Amino acid sequence: MVFFRFPFSETLWTTEQNFASQNVSFHSFDQSERIDFEGDLKEISFSDFQNLNFLSSNLSSELFDFQEENQVEYQQKLENVIHFIKENNLSKLVISRRKLVDFDGFSVDLNQTFLKLCQSYPNAFVYFFIKDDRCWIGAFSEVLGKFNKKTSEFETMSLAGTLPVEESWTSKELEEQKPVTLFIKNILKNFASEVNESETYDHISGNIKHLRTDFKAKIEKFDLENLIAELHPTPAVCGIPKDFCQKAIENFETHPRKFYAGYIQVETQETIQYFVNLRCAEFFKNAALIYVGGGITAESSPEKEWQETELKSQAILKNLEKKKN
């Protein structure tokens, strides 16, 4: 089963058991996995959702022998990544890690965790699913694409660069966002005769902020799948050039990203929306893995990048509703 809430909405949705339609699907970063939730979208009240009572202790899948990458190991890897970036003249390469939350002595109320994320991040797409021994929760703001079936208008955004809300932008973040914006603009030009681009502005997400530029263009519906295939993975979760950076990520990261940095497709009567799956965690009976990452450039500081991933992990960590066993 799956539950989700659209950005700037107070309505919770799930799917009805109607196998004629597949309106919600989760795609892994490398496109090797896909989880579909069949059925029409159905509104569910907050009280009905809370009565479902999902606890991590009731999950069947457990995590064993997990070795978490510590700060020294991660920073050493980033030193190698920065050397690789300079050697290959890359503008950016996105590297991720997994943070372990051990449920020793407590379990997590998954219902309340989902609801706390909804409250903490009103501008985010928030989801929670359990299927085939898999359980994931996420809350994030990045839209890969939104297609309006009536007007054929397609919207997307360039979202990159991360700082605590109170800090000022530096050249590092500004330079990190530029190639993302250019990448999206060049792809849209292949599908639309006119592309509208907004000014770059601050996008606030809880205790952190990003640089954001919005795009709008009219496209043909039959081009939609090809457009999404070209946009994913964006430089915000991968790097440029895309194929080269994906191979580099496989070499530098010792873990599979699974659904982290993949995307979620949600189809309604009016729209088809695609959300990038960031700020997310994979839950097990005895633990959770929080997936976080950052855009590494030639100017990156490994220590600051570690702190950035710690900051990003708080999106999930501070909203975990713990219960003593």
Rank of each mutant, 00 (worst) to 15 (best):
Tyr121Arg: 11
Tyr121Leu: 14
Val126Trp: 08
Phe128Ala: 11
Ile130Arg: 10
Asp132Val: 01
Asp133Tyr: 05
Gly138Cys: 11
Ala139His: 07
Phe140Ile: 00
Val143Trp: 00
Gly145Tyr: 03
Gly145Trp: 01
Lys146Met: 11
Lys146Gln: 15
Lys149Cys: 12
Lys149Glu: 13
Lys149Ser: 11
Lys150Ala: 15
Thr151Cys: 10
Ser152Pro: 01
Glu153Cys: 12
Glu153Pro: 05
Glu153Lys: 13
Phe154Leu: 13
Gly161Leu: 06
Gly161Arg: 08
Thr162Arg: 09
Leu163Lys: 15
Val165Phe: 10
Ser168His: 06
Trp169Asp: 06
Thr170His: 12
Ser171Asp: 12
Ser171Leu: 13
Ser171Ala: 12
Glu173Ile: 05
Leu174Glu: 10
Glu175Ser: 14
Glu176Gly: 04
Glu176Phe: 01
Gln177Asp: 10
Lys178Ala: 13
Lys178Asn: 07
Val180Gly: 01
Thr181Val: 00
Leu182Asn: 11
Leu182Met: 08
Phe183Gln: 02
Ile184Tyr: 00
Ile184His: 02
Ile184Ala: 02
Phe191Gly: 00
Ala192Arg: 01
Ser193Glu: 12
Glu194Ser: 06
Asn196Val: 02
Ser198Ala: 05
Ser198Tyr: 03
Thr200Arg: 08
Tyr201Asn: 09
His203Glu: 10
His203Met: 14
Gly206Pro: 09
Gly206Thr: 09
His210Ser: 11
His210Tyr: 07
Leu211Ile: 07
Arg212Gly: 03
Asp214Phe: 02
Ala217Ile: 03
Ile219Met: 03
Ile219Cys: 09
Ile219Leu: 04
Phe222Glu: 15
Leu224Pro: 09
Leu224Cys: 06
Ala229Asp: 15
Leu231Gln: 14
Leu231Glu: 13
Leu231Met: 13
Pro233Gly: 14
Ala236Thr: 10
Val237Met: 04
Ile240Lys: 12
Pro241Thr: 15
Pro241Asn: 15
Phe244Tyr: 15
Phe244Val: 15
Phe244Pro: 14
